[in-house]
């Protein structure tokens, strides 16, 4: 069985990093150098197409991870991406209030369209001046069904610990 998961979040939240960390194949990445000033202050490359990763669970189940670009707000690609999706991972950059604000409208977009499980990952917890999880949860008005957890997409061990934590 093929299971489709969307990895989404605002510009620079760490979506590509996340897929890179857990995918067993080299993700098909579509990175391009950032040009405008606001973007390049944040990082050197951005995703323009779509990230793609694959995680084999067992003989029957394979997860396919689709990373949305963080750039354009909900283009047609987003609508077509939704078809058949079974889970959404929403990443936010916990150090950047603008990232948290933008994540909210992305959440509203998916929320009103598909009734599937979500997790919100408050990313980049290794950095200083991160917003507390509880504050992010309040700002996003998450309901009790949605997990929000701190994580560091860069660090594979942290990703593992994070999911083990999630199981308990």
């Amino acid at each position: 069985m093929k299971v489709k998961i969307i990895v989404t979040g605002p510009f620079g939240a760490g979506k590509t990093q996340f897929i890179r960390t857990i995918s067993e194949i080299d993700p098909v990445l579509t990175e391009q150098k950032t040009k405008n000033k606001e973007e390049s202050q944040k990082k050197d490359f951005k995703t323009v197409g779509m990230d793609f990763g694959k995680v084999t669970i067992d003989n029957d189940t394979v997860l396919y991870l689709f990373g949305t670009p963080g750039q354009d707000r909900f283009s047609l690609t987003w609508e077509s991406l939704i078809k058949g999706v079974l889970g959404i991972v929403l990443l936010v950059d916990s150090t950047d209030i603008n990232s948290i604000v933008k994540a909210r409208s992305i959440l509203d977009f998916f929320y009103s369209r598909v009734k599937i499980p979500y997790i919100v990952a408050a990313n980049k917890q290794d950095l200083l001046k991160t917003w507390p999880i509880e504050a992010i949860k309040s700002y996003l008005d998450l309901d009790e069904n949605v997990k929000i957890l701190p994580r560091v997409a860069k660090d594979k061990e942290s990703v593992k610990r994070y999911y083990l934590n999630f199981l308990r």
Binding site: M1, V3, V55, D60, I116, P117, Y163, L164, F166, L167
Partner: peptide, 20 residues
């Protein structure tokens, strides 16, 4: 939620966990 979470195979979050 519309999907049947009892079936682990289609619970993507659990799937990721197992893989990890």
């Amino acid at each position: 939620l519309k999907i049947d979470l009892k079936s682990i195979a289609i619970d993507p979050i659990k799937g990721i966990i197992r893989r990890l």
